[in-house]
Design a protein around this nucleic acid. Structure first.
Lengths: 332, 332
DNA sequence: CTGAAAGCGCTTACAG
DNA sequence: CTGAAAGCGCTTACAG
């Protein structure tokens, strides 16, 4: 061929009119062929499809969406996909969303070079944004624009639509258990600089009330290596605690490997616990005792709010609470 | 207020015209206010924004996209987000895509109730689809529609655009290493029923050529538990192999924990290896020796193809090859 | 600073 | 079986 006619779409892409012209039919005949609709002869269909193929025609999702309404899209913002908690949550959200025929647009606030721009882009394409917005939630909700936002585990929910995680009952249960097995001193591995994190404070209070001495170790990097280093120091210096309570499961895994390397038996010499309830904790030896949350429940609550917000339905209580629970395995 | 006027959008949602009417301005003044454009007085802007808020106005992404072109969207299909390999890949793709200002639509073929429908939905919203389509790749590419597809690690690439993973050099290096440390018999944990998987066949051939006896254990469930069970049986029955080569890292972790429970020292008594190179393998003790692939490289190759396909650029070689490499850690 | 017109690419009635 | 018309909700020139 001497080269196709000039194409009209953006970036020189073919539009339905180009295909119609190439096939010598009207645009609605092209629609019928492309969408497998009835009321078109087989030969016409073939001819149209061939023209579409030759022109590399791909229907515009915008043109089509404007007419059909299109599917709903959920923007999911996670913290850091390299921490296994994020993908576990994403998996639960994706599954639930698929059941509702929603698509999921995934963004990683930690990995994004420019989180603000990323949120704008997400807001432009999603009907609702759900996610961990961390400390800058207020700023970031603005960047999302007029699209409603569901906050996951916000530091301060205020009256914003959010899924609140309640860890207090699980922490109390853990403290009961620790006292029951004779723990008298515990160290808490906390990523927070300065005052303890909410989780750290919860652990400290629950243990202290039961006569367990608590030492909060601040500034621990939120990785397995960070927790391993901190644990190694803890085991080497001064009086050894008989329990190490980590901020999350990944950090608890670091604590476990530090104990193993130091020849410290878990749970014989030291007990170790995490937070989150990842499957990961069942793969190591000893298996990890942890304060778990059912992420399917979190996803269900988030989607529940998201659907209501997308429909602009009135939400008498824009918050859902999900409880953590104590998951006893081998390490404590 | 006695209740707002009837709204014109789908689902009774407000459109730009509703806001214009409520604020007593024209529609392009609403556009200016919503998008923070210049050439509008502060008071008018306030009035428009208030009307938009009252009406819960959210601009249609279709209306806007039709005019502006909108951002590119990549549909990413993964296998099963609960296997850590998928999120590791997704993280790499999301990061790379963010750099290109593409959004990522995430779908899980394993979790989806109806994978065919899911792929149609993805095809309708994405400019390119990238992913693991498994054995049914041919059928599924059809379901995606006219949108181009990049296959990740396809069983049979043919001449379809794809990122091919080449594991052969890494397998040879592993076999060299195993022979070097004196291994004489190895068991391969293979999920495949019937003939061995490509990975299994590669391992078998490389070991056999070096005089290492290989026993392929078929039908092993592709989970840590499945591999642990198979390993437990392997250690109990008959002559013990001195190496267990797992199909992937998660299965290798199962093999490790089975060894630990059986009191078998790794790597002293038995050596264990995996496939994939997940961070996970560095968190356990002993750390996992594995045949790793750089997922950033995979993501870069996939995005490279995706961009070219989205631009309908000619692709002389529609395939990119990424090599696995031997990552020696403690377990072998 | 504000508005009337045109048009983005598609599908949905409706006519023939 | 095929096509001419209308319209989805927005933004981009252009005019005032």
């Amino acid at each position: 061929m001497a080269g196709p006619a000039r194409l009209s779409g953006p970036g020189g892409r073919a539009t339905i009119l180009d295909v119609a012209a190439a096939a010598g039919v009207s645009r609605q005949t092209v629609t019928r062929a492309m969408n497998g609709m009835p009321g078109i002869s087989a030969t016409t269909r073939e001819r149209v499809l061939a023209a579409a193929e030759a022109l590399q025609y791909r229907p515009s999702r915008f043109g089509r969406g404007l007419v059909t309404g299109g599917e709903r899209q959920l923007g999911l913002v996670v913290d850091d996909l390299r921490n296994p908690y994020s993908p576990a949550l994403a998996a639960a959200v994706v599954r639930r969303a698929a059941g509702l025929c929603w698509n999921v647009l995934l963004a990683d606030a930690g990995l994004a070079g420019d989180a603000g721009r990323m949120l704008e882009a997400l807001g432009a394409q999603a009907d609702v944004v759900v996610g961990y917005l961390g400390g800058r939630a207020a700023d970031w909700v603005d960047r999302v624009g007029p699209v409603p936002v569901v906050l996951l585990d916000p530091a301060d929910p205020g009256d914003a639509p959010s899924v609140v995680l309640d860890r207090s009952a699980a922490v109390e249960a853990l403290a009961d258990h620790l006292r029951g097995v004779g723990i008298v001193s515990a160290a808490v591995l906390d990523p927070r600089t300065g005052p303890p994190s909410p989780r750290g404070a919860l652990l400290e209070s629950a243990c202290t009330r039961r006569g367990i001495a608590v030492r909060i170790v601040p500034d621990v990097a939120m990785t397995a290596e960070g927790a391993a280093d901190a644990t190694t120091r803890l085991l080497a210096d001064g009086p050894r605690p008989d329990a190490v309570l980590a901020f999350n499961d990944v950090m608890a895994l670091g604590a476990l490997s530090a104990c193993r390397r130091a020849g410290v038996d878990v749970p014989g010499d030291v007990r170790v616990t995490g937070f989150d309830g990842l499957d990961l904790g069942g793969l190591v030896a000893p298996t990890l005792t942890t304060l778990a949350v059912d992420l399917d429940e979190v996803a269900a609550a988030a989607l529940d709010l998201a659907v209501a917000l997308a429909d602009a339905a009135p939400l008498p209580t824009p918050q859902r609470t999900v409880q953590h629970h104590l998951l006893l395995r081998e390490s404590a």
